[in-house]
Write a protein that binds this DNA or RNA. Structure first.
Lengths: 201, 201
DNA sequence: ACCTGAACACCGTTCAAGT
DNA sequence: ACCTGAACACCGTTCAAGT
């Protein structure tokens, strides 16, 4: 529940609950379009709040970014766990990669964080990313057992490739919004057992 | 000659020549370590100059970034043209990708710009990147004719994969500085004719 | 408790004053 | 011509003053 304050906090007063909801909603919209570089003043204005209020709810701008991105990673974890039951294990894995890349295509803030913005190191986000990674590990295990991916591929590889495939396509996306499908397909070909040549340690 | 001012400029006075050399040298060092987010004040101080002097030589911080990155792309173009004569066409192509990725590993500013910092759109840099791309196109053509890469791969693909492979490895580099070799190998496997399955349009 | 805007130390950029 | 630092409009963050 990232829309809630820290676990040990007392209940919020009614006006604070309202401020917080307005803030989260504005932050979702503004970050999605303008990325993590959107200013706190910009978000405060979109929420109809003073910027002091933003810092009352989130001590640092990064904490706000984390709260928003955390929600998105939650969604991605849920999607991943559903894909674990896909009929075709290979399609399950491809479905995860498609979801992760489309998230980057449609949300600038997620894209910034995935690409390695400093917020990545935030403890809350690190924990959530670890949860995602274990879900992905299960997805990869299943695909591997079905012979759909080579033996030497790990869940971490697939996680890292999520950013890699998106960043490969990124410079061309304004002109060719679907170009990421090309690089996802190319990457997927490299994951096939048929393509396997020994990888360096 | 990116250490020189614009083509149509009058010759610089002796003190300006010295300032410019100090500035370029400091910018090379500072940008390499701290990336494009290093402040102009930081570079001015490293050069022993007032920051007003920086803006006298480069009207915008971005122009200074471009001048420095431009030099690095020049070096990469030269490397690429030499690799065109490598004994093994596949090794020539792999050599280019290795050089491009190592540049990102060792130089934070190059890495920032390759990853899509706004400076990428600067006309001077766009031109230089286009030159690099045609050199890479020749390298790919040669590898394709030798049957070392699949038919549907272009020079642009290889250019884009340079960032992609680096960004895949980026989160792990502090712990595993050689991990990029794993993803380069994996990507290279995907480029093999044996791995080829039709790519989306 | 909570909200707010003025104040602070930064940033890139401009420019008047010095040589 | 060239160099410089003070001044400006931004940024994230703090905090005294208000309810």
């Amino acid at each position: 529940m990232s829309t809630e304050p820290a676990d040990n906090a007392r209940p919020l007063r009614a006006d604070a609950v309202r401020s917080r909801a307005l803030l989260m909603s504005a932050a979702r919209d503004v970050f999605a379009v303008r990325g993590t570089e959107a200013s706190v003043a910009e978000i405060a204005q979109a929420a109809g709040l003073g910027k002091g209020t933003v810092f009352r709810h989130f001590a640092h701008k990064d904490d706000l970014v984390v709260a928003i991105v955390d929600e998105m990673v939650d969604d991605l974890v849920a999607t991943t766990e559903q894909l674990l039951h896909a009929d075709d294990p290979a399609e399950g894995l491809r479905g995860f990669m498609t979801a992760g890349i489309e998230l980057q295509v449609h949300n600038q803030a997620f894209c910034d964080v995935a690409a390695g913005a400093a917020v990545r190191q935030h403890p809350v986000l690190r924990g959530k990313i670890a949860r995602l990674e274990s879900a992905v590990e299960a997805l990869v295990d299943r695909a591997r057992r079905a012979g759909a991916v080579r033996d030497d591929i790990t869940g971490q590889d697939v996680m890292l490739l999520l950013t890699g495939v998106y960043q490969t396509a990124a410079p061309m996306l304004p002109e060719s919004p679907e170009i990421w499908k090309r690089y996802l397909a190319l990457t997927f070909d490299g994951l096939q057992p048929a393509a396997a040549r020994p990888l360096p340690a």
